[in-house]
Structure formats: C-alpha cells, structure tokens
Design a protein around this nucleic acid. Sequence first.
RNA 1: GGGCCCGUAGCUCAGUCUGGAUAGAGCGACGGCCUUCGGAGCCGUAGGUCGCGGGUUCGAAUCCCGCCGGGCCCGCCA
Length: 546
Amino acid sequence: MGKQVAYLVFVYSKIKDKVDISGKSDHWFGALYSIANASIESLIRLDEIDLQKNSLLKIISSKTDAQNYDELERYIKKLSKIGNYYTIDWIDILKKILEVIQEKKGIEEKNKYENVKQVTAIIDTINKTVEWLEVFSSVSIKWPKLSKTVLSTLINERNINEKISELMQKYESGEYKEINSLFREVCSKVLEGIKETLNNVGIKFDKFDWESDLVRNKLVDKILNELEQRGWIIEDKDGAKILNIKKALKIKDIRDIFGLDKVDEESAPPNLVLIRSDGTTLYTTRDIAYALYKGESDKVEKVLNIIGKDQTLPQKQLKAALYLAGYKNVADKLFHVAYELVILPGAKLSARRGRYITFDEILEDAKEKALEEIRKRSTDISLEEFDLARDIAVGAVKYALISVAPERTITFDWNRIINFEQNSGPFLQYTYARATSILRKINFEIPEADIINYEVLNTNVEKELIFNLARFPEIVLEAGEKFRPDIIADYANKISILFNSFYQRFPVLRADTREKRDARLIMVDAFRTVLRNSLDLLGIKPLEKM
RNA sequence: GGGCCCGUAGCUCAGUCUGGAUAGAGCGACGGCCUUCGGAGCCGUAGGUCGCGGGUUCGAAUCCCGCCGGGCCCGCCA
C-alpha cells in the first residue's frame, strides 16, 4: 500500500517466476526489499542524470577549461551506456564527474556564472546516486544471487517511478484483482514470518487490518470531506491535497498539539500532504483514518500509536487532522507512544539499506549462550533443556530491550543483550526459580497468613523487601500512566536483588524458630507472586527450574 | 535556519515530571564467601567537576535562561 511496499511488490512481480522463496519468508522478502529499494533508488537517479546529461555538458562546455571538459565528456559517454550493463564502475565514473563539475562550480561562482543553481542540483543528484549505488553494492555482497536477478531484470525498465505510481493507484482502487492479490500475497507472506517469530517469544496479536481497506471503505474519503468542508484543505497546482496546518495554528488547541504558545513563520510546523497528485494516499493519511477507526467507539478510552520517535511530527499532524475534521474526542484520546530506535555502534540500522539484524538472529545467539550456561550446570542436554534455553534467551533479549527508557537511543551491544547476570531477564528467572525451589520443598503448603507473627521479619533486608513488595500496585500504575515498561523491569530487578540478599543471609526452612520459618515462608511466597506478576507484565516467562 | 530528544562512574543505564540529607544499579577492575534452602548468587573496595556558565531557592542532577557536544525530524518515503 505504501510506496515502500509498492517497490517490493513491483520487483517481486518482475522476478517471481525466476526465483523461489527460500528460507523464512520475512527474511527472504526483507532481503528482496533491501535489494529492490537500493536498485530502484539508484536506477531512478541514473535516469535523471541521463536526462540531465546534455545540459550538463552544455554548462561545462562554456569554455575556460578544455581539459576538464574533455575529461567530463569521456565520463559522460561512459555513463550513457547505462542501461546496457551493470558495473560497479558507475560509482567511480559518477565520482569523477562530480569532481570535475565541483571544480567547475568553483570557477563559476568566482565568475558569478548564472548556472550555479543547476549545477548544484546536478551535484546533488549525483551525490545521491553514488550513495545508493554504494548501498546497492553492499547489498549485492550480502545477497549476490538475488541482487543479480533483480538488477538484470530492472536494468531495462524505464519510468519506474510512473509504473510504481500506477501500481499504487490500481491497488488502492481495489478494482484490479491480480494486483490486489499480488500486494496481499507479499504482505501476507512477510507477516507470516513475523508472526512465527513473535509467536515463539510469546507475542500474539488479536487483529490485523489492511491499510488499503481504509481507503476502499471510504474512511479516508470521509475524513477528507470533513476537512474539505471545513476549509482545511488546499490543493496545489498538480492536484495534491494538502492539510493547511499553518492556517489551523490560529486555533489554540492546535497550537497545543504542536506544543507552541505563539505562532511565528519560522517555527510553524509544515503543512501535510494528504493525497498525492496521482490520487493515492500517504501513510499518515491512512493513519488518520486508522486512528478514527480505532478510537471512534465510546468504549475505547485510549488509542496508543506505538511508533518511533522519528514519527513525532507526523503523529502531531495526524492528531491535528482528526481535530480539524471534527473528531476532537478521538484526537484527545490519541497518544503517540514514542520510542527511540536501536542503532549499531557506528551506523544506523536501515532496512532500506540492507543494514539490519533480524530478531531471529539475536534470539539464536542468545539461545546458544543459554545452552552454554545450562551445560556448565548439567552434562547432557535434553530436549526439555532446549526449550529452557529458548525461554532464557527470550527473557534476556526482552529484558535488554525493555529495561531502557523508551526515549533513549539503544546502542546495539551483544554483551548487554546476552547478559545473564544481575540486571537481566535470566537473573530474574533465576531468582524466581530459587524462591520456587524453597516452596517446592514443602509442597507449596504455605502457612495461614493470619496466624503469622510478622514482627519477626525485623532485619533491614526483610523490611526493605516487604516495603518494596507493597509498592507493586503503585509501580504498575505509574508504568501504565507513563507508558514506561522499563519501570517494571527496574522494579523487578530491585526486588530480586533484595530477595537474593535475604536468601544469602537468612535460612527460611531452617530458621531457628517455627515462628520465623512461617513468617519467612509467607514472605517468600509474596515475593514469588509479585515477581511472577512483574515478569508476566514484561512478557518474560517465570521459570520454576533452570 | 526551525523544532524535539539525549548528555550522570571506564562502559550501559536509573534518578529530572513532583527540588531535600553522604547521587544509585549493572558490566568491567580488584579482594573475599560453597559442612546450611540452587554460586546464573552474595559481601566488600576502588571509581562521579551529575556537559559548561549563569539565575531562582534555606536547599538544584532535578526548576528557569544562555551556551557546547551527540541523535532525530522539518519528503507527493515509511
């Protein structure tokens, strides 16, 4: 539905008869997506350069430096062969052209030559082309065979942009059966793989919706009409429909949405394009309709859009659009739950550039580490222990990702993710197993709570543990209000540290009096309950043995 | 240029909204603890101008202003 999906579908439709989907479907399509994106972005720009080629020559040919000119002409002639073959030399050729015209630009600026702007544009295009070609080259090292197939198929395509636009129009209309099934085939297959992975780590979904249905069932139209009638839409010369946010800033509530107390030209947020000039919708447009769809019912108290921090502006625009379309009630219960992205040391993760680590890979590594740890403790590994390793691995990965405040950028670090010591998922699971182990020895026959003399729980560590256990409800409330699961992770870690400290120092079953033994048993049981509930909230499996 | 976020120990992070006493964890380093319920543990040591500079206050990591460093956004991509 989105343009990015259309890229994938476009390429898939071209090569589907030449290839087989191998391995996990989401991984395969993930690779194809990176390849498709890098090749399309490159080819589109190479086309542009091809078009600009003559004016390029003209600008440069305005004498002064004959040597530069000859050199440039040579490279451009090479470039004109684009379309017939692919070679990594493109990058070098373009870089050299770039060097020559940049040098040229220097001369021109000195002479106040008039075409500086045009040259700047060309330099920009070439820069981006080089960038994407470099991406493509790294992608094709990662997936050589598939990359070759894609490139050899796409290289003779012309007007890719137009074709993709057409593809989207047809899909959104819902009137083209083949195109419809193609899009949905791709999406379903990707989703299939994602669901499989998430299902393995205990994450399930109640419902999925097709974005395209929001267009076809006229919900997008409905909002658009409301906005149009209220005079919030402007149409530009190409026919794109734009939400007039600048005008809407006169309304105080809208300024509040953007966190502005006054409006000035400089700091005003930009208008939002809702409909492309080809008539198709954009992601944010569909998301406006989707927010309405989710939040229209009075039974719904809050609509949480959990999406990256980089979406802050579009999410504010979305909220403003709902308000302006007359759905203040829905706008008010809409929250953007923002989280920062995970980055690699040095480079940003980017699916579009083929720079990513799959969740499956991370789990696999964590699982190996877990098996290693299990082997340290018992010699032969049973099938059951493989399950155990998975539960531990999942606990480690989930905790690592969830225990950092959402607004903080997470720098990807294997050591932190595959940490099984304190302040980790496995540490919590281990502590839970220890507590369980005590109770198992008495067949979980916990003494009656109301006959206990709690006065005997009078050591500092016991008092602190009890005090913290009592805080559980307020911790949950706080985490919920702030949309901060890390608060629960931190809490679970804290009570576990306290429990371990207690465990090390004081015997439970062999306490010196019956009174103490019973009181401590009650405390262990309470701790176990609170930790189990915390782990459940975090989606980490409490383990009774490990 | 405009907007948002981050800056706390060598590293990864809590604590900032709602100001309060010697600023807390984990990792890493160093030193201890298995005749007792599971050592994936526990106890201890070293390590911090809370980015910098002003201001408000009896009191500032926390509130206000100004800088500096890093990230993100400002697309008819998502």
